[in-house]
């Protein structure tokens, strides 16, 4: 079994966003970077599948040299090898161009299973995995929250308001994964040390003509006026009255 996971380096934001002066990007001066949550789960799923069925796993990202940090994190958790499609201008690539470059790279490699996030944490285009599946002419189920491999087939489940939708497709196949499919492990110290010794394969991807051009980023309106109801247990009388006023009791 050969499994590929595609991940993206994104800023690790928490309390709030600061934008750069040109309003084109998130100011990352004081931020770290991370793997998007859905993709962290895709990495975990790849490791579990190889642990169970044997074979090898590969992690791939298209991004700057600094994205080696995210590749190493995946290696430290147990992924076997890593590919960096090095593009310093990766931010200007549209999802179509990213998909073409990934498909071009992985087509000759013969993966049985290709895992993506359902959408990236930052730009949320919801499409790179589906595009790669089309370019490789293999089936794809998006937004899955459970995956099982049985006799060359994959059984994938999506969660909907009605229940679990079960899909069965033959391999090779692409799946885009949602957080919740598993709870990702933390890398062990030994894993981190071992990952340092794994060479990262570097390639220069070919960029297609771009069809989308970002102009700016902006914050949506937030408009709430805070009323402090009180401090500590003394506040509960007022809270209960407010709950009654709002129809909650």
């Amino acid at each position: 079994m050969k499994v590929l996971v595609c991940i993206k380096r994104v800023p690790d934001t928490g309390g709030g966003f600061r934008l750069t002066a040109d309003n084109k990007r998130v100011d990352t001066t004081n931020l770290g970077f991370a793997i998007s949550p859905h993709e962290e789960c895709a990495v975990e799923e790849a490791i579990r599948i190889i642990e169970k069925h044997g074979g090898s796993s590969t992690v791939l990202t298209l991004g700057p040299m600094a994205a080696q940090e995210q590749l190493r994190e995946a290696l430290a958790k147990g992924i076997n090898s890593a590919i960096l499609l090095e593009a310093d201008d990766y931010e200007s690539w549209d999802a179509r161009a990213v998909a073409h470059a990934i498909a071009e790279t992985v087509k000759p490699m013969g993966f049985d299973l290709l895992l993506f996030g359902n959408e990236s944490a930052d730009v949320c285009n919801y499409q790179v995995g589906l595009r790669v599946a089309h370019l490789l002419d293999v089936p794809c189920v998006s937004g899955i929250k459970a995956l099982e491999i049985q006799n060359g087939k994959a059984i994938a489940k999506r969660e909907s308001s009605e229940g679990w939708e079960v899909y069965e497709v033959s391999l090779p196949a692409v799946f885009t994964v949602k957080e919740g499919i598993n709870v990702p492990r933390h890398p062990s110290l030994r894993g981190i040390m071992a990952a340092k010794k794994i060479p990262i394969e570097q390639k220069k991807p070919i960029r297609q003509n771009l069809q989308m051009a970002r102009k700016l980023l902006k914050k949506p309106q937030e408009g709430r006026q805070l009323e402090i109801l009180g401090q500590g247990v003394e506040a509960v009388g007022k809270v209960a009255a407010k709950l009654r006023e709002l129809g909650a009791i």
Partner: peptide, 20 residues
């Protein structure tokens, strides 16, 4: 010419031009 679309699940908005 273009659209405003959601980034970060809707925490930020992006104005982008579509050339195709």
């Amino acid at each position: 010419k273009g659209v405003t679309r959601t980034n970060w699940g809707g925490s930020l908005l992006e104005e982008t031009e579509i050339l195709s």
